[in-house]
Protein backbone atom coordinates (compact mmCIF):
# COMPACT_ATOMS: atom_id res chain seq x y z
CA UNK A 1 0.00 0.00 0.00
CA UNK A 2 1.03 3.59 -0.50
CA UNK A 3 0.52 6.47 1.87
CA UNK A 4 0.17 9.65 -0.14
CA UNK A 5 0.05 13.32 0.71
CA UNK A 6 -1.35 15.87 -1.69
CA UNK A 7 -2.60 19.45 -1.81
CA UNK A 8 -5.75 20.74 -3.49
CA UNK A 9 -7.77 23.94 -3.57
CA UNK A 10 -10.39 24.14 -0.82
CA UNK A 11 -13.95 23.41 -1.89
CA UNK A 12 -17.30 22.99 -0.16
CA UNK A 13 -17.32 23.53 3.60
CA UNK A 14 -13.59 24.28 3.79
CA UNK A 15 -13.75 27.06 1.21
CA UNK A 16 -16.85 28.45 2.97
CA UNK A 17 -14.96 28.53 6.27
CA UNK A 18 -11.97 30.21 4.61
CA UNK A 19 -14.43 32.72 3.12
CA UNK A 20 -15.79 33.81 6.52
CA UNK A 21 -15.33 37.39 7.67
CA UNK A 22 -13.52 35.98 10.68
CA UNK A 23 -10.04 34.82 9.62
CA UNK A 24 -9.57 31.05 9.83
CA UNK A 25 -6.03 29.84 10.48
CA UNK A 26 -6.65 26.14 10.13
CA UNK A 27 -9.44 23.62 9.81
CA UNK A 28 -9.18 19.88 10.28
CA UNK A 29 -11.80 17.21 9.70
CA UNK A 30 -11.56 15.06 12.85
CA UNK A 31 -14.36 12.68 12.06
CA UNK A 32 -17.30 12.11 9.75
CA UNK A 33 -20.48 10.12 10.31
CA UNK A 34 -23.32 9.36 7.90
CA UNK A 35 -26.72 10.99 8.29
CA UNK A 36 -29.77 9.67 6.44
CA UNK A 37 -29.84 10.74 2.80
CA UNK A 38 -27.03 12.73 1.27
CA UNK A 39 -26.09 14.48 4.47
CA UNK A 40 -22.97 14.00 6.52
CA UNK A 41 -22.10 14.84 10.12
CA UNK A 42 -18.64 16.43 10.23
CA UNK A 43 -16.58 17.03 13.34
CA UNK A 44 -14.11 19.83 12.76
CA UNK A 45 -11.40 21.63 14.68
CA UNK A 46 -11.13 25.21 13.52
CA UNK A 47 -8.64 27.80 14.69
CA UNK A 48 -9.59 31.42 14.16
CA UNK A 49 -7.60 34.64 14.56
CA UNK A 50 -9.98 35.88 17.24
CA UNK A 51 -12.92 34.59 19.24
CA UNK A 52 -16.13 33.91 17.30
CA UNK A 53 -19.70 33.11 18.27
CA UNK A 54 -21.99 30.38 17.01
CA UNK A 55 -24.52 33.03 15.91
CA UNK A 56 -21.91 34.77 13.75
CA UNK A 57 -20.95 31.51 12.06
CA UNK A 58 -24.56 30.37 11.63
CA UNK A 59 -25.54 33.65 9.97
CA UNK A 60 -22.71 33.34 7.45
CA UNK A 61 -23.20 29.63 6.74
CA UNK A 62 -26.92 29.36 5.91
CA UNK A 63 -26.77 25.84 4.49
CA UNK A 64 -24.67 24.45 7.31
CA UNK A 65 -26.47 23.16 10.36
CA UNK A 66 -24.24 23.76 13.38
CA UNK A 67 -25.16 21.05 15.86
CA UNK A 68 -22.54 21.85 18.43
CA UNK A 69 -19.73 24.30 18.96
CA UNK A 70 -17.30 24.15 21.88
CA UNK A 71 -14.26 26.24 22.66
CA UNK A 72 -10.96 24.43 23.18
CA UNK A 73 -9.71 24.70 26.75
CA UNK A 74 -6.08 25.46 26.10
CA UNK A 75 -5.41 26.68 22.57
CA UNK A 76 -6.54 30.20 21.77
CA UNK A 77 -9.44 30.88 19.41
CA UNK A 78 -9.83 27.16 18.67
CA UNK A 79 -13.26 25.56 18.38
CA UNK A 80 -14.62 22.06 17.98
CA UNK A 81 -17.53 22.15 15.58
CA UNK A 82 -20.13 19.49 14.86
CA UNK A 83 -21.93 20.36 11.63
CA UNK A 84 -24.35 18.62 9.29
CA UNK A 85 -23.82 19.42 5.63
CA UNK A 86 -24.60 17.99 2.23
CA UNK A 87 -22.09 15.26 1.37
CA UNK A 88 -20.99 17.28 -1.66
CA UNK A 89 -19.64 19.87 0.81
CA UNK A 90 -17.04 17.32 1.88
CA UNK A 91 -16.09 16.41 -1.67
CA UNK A 92 -12.51 15.23 -1.15
CA UNK A 93 -13.62 12.96 1.68
CA UNK A 94 -16.48 11.61 -0.44
CA UNK A 95 -14.22 11.08 -3.48
CA UNK A 96 -11.63 9.24 -1.41
CA UNK A 97 -14.11 6.88 0.20
CA UNK A 98 -16.05 6.38 -3.04
CA UNK A 99 -12.81 5.15 -4.58
CA UNK A 100 -12.00 2.94 -1.59
CA UNK A 101 -9.05 5.05 -0.47
CA UNK A 102 -8.60 5.60 3.27
CA UNK A 103 -8.49 9.23 4.40
CA UNK A 104 -6.18 9.93 7.34
CA UNK A 105 -5.94 13.67 7.60
CA UNK A 106 -7.71 16.51 5.84
CA UNK A 107 -6.35 19.85 7.00
CA UNK A 108 -6.99 23.28 5.56
CA UNK A 109 -4.45 26.04 6.03
CA UNK A 110 -2.91 28.86 3.99
CA UNK A 111 -5.86 28.64 1.60
CA UNK A 112 -5.28 25.05 0.53
CA UNK A 113 -6.22 21.58 1.72
CA UNK A 114 -3.53 19.14 2.77
CA UNK A 115 -4.69 15.54 2.50
CA UNK A 116 -3.08 12.31 3.66
CA UNK A 117 -4.62 9.06 2.47
CA UNK A 118 -3.79 5.43 1.80
CA UNK A 119 -4.21 3.81 -1.62
CA UNK A 120 -3.56 0.23 -2.70
CA UNK A 121 -0.99 0.73 -5.44
CA UNK A 122 0.15 2.90 -8.31
CA UNK A 123 -2.98 2.31 -10.43
CA UNK A 124 -5.19 3.14 -7.49
CA UNK A 125 -3.16 6.32 -6.91
CA UNK A 126 -3.68 7.36 -10.55
CA UNK A 127 -7.36 6.60 -10.35
CA UNK A 128 -7.92 8.53 -7.09
CA UNK A 129 -5.66 11.48 -8.00
CA UNK A 130 -7.22 11.74 -11.46
CA UNK A 131 -10.77 11.93 -10.11
CA UNK A 132 -9.88 14.48 -7.43
CA UNK A 133 -7.96 16.57 -9.96
CA UNK A 134 -11.00 16.56 -12.26
CA UNK A 135 -13.29 17.73 -9.46
CA UNK A 136 -10.98 20.23 -7.78
CA UNK A 137 -9.19 21.64 -10.83
CA UNK A 138 -5.70 20.89 -9.63
CA UNK A 139 -3.83 18.47 -7.41
CA UNK A 140 -0.25 18.57 -6.26
CA UNK A 141 1.34 15.39 -4.99
CA UNK A 142 3.57 16.22 -2.04
CA UNK A 143 4.97 12.89 -0.97
CA UNK A 144 4.56 9.15 -0.80
CA UNK A 145 5.76 6.26 1.29
CA UNK A 146 5.30 2.52 1.36
CA UNK A 147 3.14 1.12 4.16
CA UNK A 148 2.10 -2.35 5.29
CA UNK A 149 -0.97 -1.31 7.25
CA UNK A 150 -3.88 1.03 6.74
CA UNK A 151 -3.05 2.77 10.03
CA UNK A 152 -5.48 5.13 11.76
CA UNK A 153 -8.31 6.33 9.54
CA UNK A 154 -9.74 9.81 9.92
CA UNK A 155 -10.81 10.32 13.51
CA UNK A 156 -9.13 7.11 14.63
CA UNK A 157 -6.33 8.80 16.51
CA UNK A 158 -8.12 9.00 19.83
CA UNK A 159 -5.06 9.67 21.94
CA UNK A 160 -4.11 12.68 19.89
CA UNK A 161 -7.68 13.93 19.97
CA UNK A 162 -8.05 13.69 23.70
CA UNK A 163 -4.65 15.31 24.15
CA UNK A 164 -5.33 18.15 21.73
CA UNK A 165 -7.64 19.92 24.16
CA UNK A 166 -5.37 19.35 27.13
CA UNK A 167 -2.05 20.61 25.81
CA UNK A 168 -1.33 23.96 24.22
CA UNK A 169 0.37 24.18 20.83
CA UNK A 170 3.54 25.42 22.54
CA UNK A 171 3.58 22.47 24.94
CA UNK A 172 2.98 20.05 22.06
CA UNK A 173 5.83 21.68 20.11
CA UNK A 174 8.20 21.21 23.03
CA UNK A 175 7.13 17.60 23.49
CA UNK A 176 7.38 16.78 19.79
CA UNK A 177 10.78 18.45 19.37
CA UNK A 178 12.16 16.67 22.43
CA UNK A 179 10.78 13.36 21.17
CA UNK A 180 12.05 13.77 17.60
CA UNK A 181 15.52 14.81 18.76
CA UNK A 182 15.77 11.67 20.91
CA UNK A 183 15.45 13.21 24.38
CA UNK A 184 13.37 10.32 25.69
CA UNK A 185 15.69 7.59 24.41
CA UNK A 186 17.96 5.61 26.70
CA UNK A 187 20.69 6.72 26.54
CA UNK A 188 19.55 10.27 25.78
CA UNK A 189 20.51 11.39 22.25
CA UNK A 190 20.39 15.14 22.98
CA UNK A 191 20.80 17.34 26.01
CA UNK A 192 18.13 19.70 27.31
CA UNK A 193 20.49 22.51 26.29
CA UNK A 194 20.37 21.41 22.63
CA UNK A 195 16.56 21.22 22.59
CA UNK A 196 16.31 24.63 24.24
CA UNK A 197 18.64 26.04 21.56
CA UNK A 198 16.59 24.42 18.80
CA UNK A 199 13.41 26.01 20.17
CA UNK A 200 15.15 29.28 20.98
CA UNK A 201 14.00 29.20 24.61
CA UNK A 202 15.96 29.03 27.87
CA UNK A 203 16.69 25.75 29.60
CA UNK A 204 14.49 26.67 32.52
CA UNK A 205 11.55 27.46 30.20
CA UNK A 206 12.07 24.11 28.50
CA UNK A 207 12.06 22.16 31.73
CA UNK A 208 9.02 24.08 32.98
CA UNK A 209 7.08 23.33 29.76
CA UNK A 210 8.05 19.67 29.78
CA UNK A 211 6.93 19.36 33.42
CA UNK A 212 3.58 20.95 32.54
CA UNK A 213 3.17 18.48 29.68
CA UNK A 214 3.92 15.56 32.01
CA UNK A 215 1.54 16.94 34.63
CA UNK A 216 -1.26 17.31 32.05
CA UNK A 217 -0.61 13.80 30.75
CA UNK A 218 -0.92 12.39 34.26
CA UNK A 219 -4.08 14.38 34.88
CA UNK A 220 -5.58 12.86 31.76
CA UNK A 221 -4.58 9.35 32.81
CA UNK A 222 -5.32 9.45 36.53
CA UNK A 223 -7.71 12.36 36.98
CA UNK A 224 -7.07 15.60 38.88
CA UNK A 225 -4.49 15.60 41.66
CA UNK A 226 -6.10 15.43 45.15
Amino acid sequence: MLRIEFQIQPAGISSKLFGLEEQVRSIEIDNALPVTGDRIFLFLTAQFDADVSEERLASQLPETQIVDMAKAEVNQHTYYLGVIVDISEASVLALLTEHRAIPHRIVGRNAHLDVIATVRDWNHLKDVAGTIEDEHGSLELVGTTQTETIGFPLGGNKVKQSMSGKLSDKQLEVLETAYRMGYFRVPQEVTAEEIANELDISRSTLSERLRRVEHNFCELLFGPQE
Binding site: E5, W122, K126, L141, G143, T144, T145
Partner: peptide, 28 residues
Protein backbone atom coordinates in the same frame (compact mmCIF):
# COMPACT_ATOMS: atom_id res chain seq x y z
CA UNK B 1 11.49 13.76 2.76
CA UNK B 2 8.50 15.44 4.38
CA UNK B 3 8.24 15.86 8.17
CA UNK B 4 6.35 12.57 8.32
CA UNK B 5 9.02 10.76 6.30
CA UNK B 6 7.31 10.65 2.93
CA UNK B 7 9.48 10.86 -0.18
CA UNK B 8 8.91 14.33 -1.59
CA UNK B 9 7.43 14.32 -5.09
CA UNK B 10 8.45 17.06 -7.55
CA UNK B 11 6.55 18.16 -10.66
CA UNK B 12 8.31 15.82 -13.08
CA UNK B 13 7.80 12.83 -10.77
CA UNK B 14 4.13 13.72 -10.36
CA UNK B 15 3.72 13.92 -14.14
CA UNK B 16 5.28 10.49 -14.56
CA UNK B 17 3.23 8.96 -11.72
CA UNK B 18 -0.04 10.33 -13.08
CA UNK B 19 0.78 9.74 -16.78
CA UNK B 20 -2.14 7.96 -18.40
CA UNK B 21 -0.03 5.76 -20.68
CA UNK B 22 2.38 4.36 -18.09
CA UNK B 23 1.45 1.87 -15.41
CA UNK B 24 3.03 -0.87 -13.33
CA UNK B 25 4.19 -1.25 -9.73
CA UNK B 26 5.37 1.58 -7.52
CA UNK B 27 7.88 0.88 -4.75
CA UNK B 28 9.27 3.56 -2.47
Amino acid sequence: RTLTGKARIDDLTQSILLHEHVSGDLVV
